[in-house]
Simulated assay, not measured.
Amino acid sequence: MLDFIIDETRCVQCGECAADCPASIIDMDGGLPRIPEHRESYCIGCQHCLAVCPTAALSILGKDPDKSAPVLPPSPDALENLIKSRRSVRRFLPDRVEGHILDRLMDVIAHAPTGKNQRRIRFTLVDDPQVMELIRVGTMDGIRKAVIDDSLPDGMEFFAKMVAPYDQGRDIIYRKAPHMIIASAPKDSAAPDADPFIALSYFELMAQSLGLGTVWCGFARWALQSVVPELGRTLGIPADHRSMYAMMFGYPAVSYARAVQRDVVGVHRVGPADLEGGR
């Protein structure tokens, strides 16, 4: 049930909701927007119609348009600085991130785009530093056993080199971060490879704006998927989730004073000659 409702006292019959609907299921027959019953199943739940309505006359899926946040675009300079100054943090304080900040982060990444707006990403969140420590110890115990048994998967032999540093107090995998978030998606979703990465990109930028540090962690992904998969399963990641990636986060124990300087590389501008050559 879409619960598509039009407040006739507010609707100006501009037709923007119909024009912007990705599924083209809204029509303006009779002047007011409506969704014929036989088209309702094609709705992808994106709420574009609610967002584009200039007078907040449209409600769908039980959402009250008056409760939606207004659009307040950040300044280009501020957004550019946030992106350019973001650093991968590998030195964290042991402090736990407050619950209200975690809730805000999770609320924000719920708005990350997904293929066909399916929103089938599962976020496996470690919000307790003590649980994070158990994962850290369990991972290294599993790696140590695999080294002794000579059972590290092909291509994962490099994990053997992480045991000695760990025994000396260096956590190369999890970087002693107090928190971790894993984004995963089922293999039969519309964009299982892209969705988790898009969501974590949203997460890290919002985390940076809140004073947190993040680091993309391929080591954790490989360890939990291939070296100690039994530990990965205990985290509740479904077996049918093909794509997953992990990110460590917490309050940084390092402060960067400036952005780095990078040259633009790898840009190919398509011109008429490219198109003519493909004929």
Rank of each mutant, 00 (worst) to 15 (best):
P33L: 07
I35S: 01
E37K: 13
S41L: 07
C43A: 11
C46W: 04
Q47H: 12
H48C: 05
A51L: 13
V52T: 14
V52Y: 05
T55M: 02
A57H: 12
L58A: 07
L61P: 02
G62L: 01
A69C: 07
A69S: 12
V71K: 10
P74L: 05
P76S: 02
D77Y: 03
D77I: 11
A78I: 02
A78Q: 08
L79V: 11
E80N: 14
L82K: 00
S85V: 00
S85M: 11
R86I: 00
R86W: 00
S88C: 07
R90S: 08
R90F: 06
R91K: 12
R91H: 09
L93R: 14
P94T: 04
D95K: 11
V97N: 11
H100C: 05
I101V: 14
D103G: 13
D107C: 13
V108A: 07
A110E: 12
H111L: 13
H111D: 04
P113M: 09
K116P: 04
R119H: 08
R120D: 12
I121P: 03
T124Q: 03
V126K: 03
D127I: 00
P129Q: 09
P129F: 04
V131E: 15
M132E: 01
E133Q: 13
L134D: 12
I135E: 09
R136H: 05
D141C: 02
G142V: 00
K145A: 15
K145N: 08
A146K: 10
A146M: 03
A146R: 12
A146V: 00
I148P: 01
D149K: 08
D149T: 05
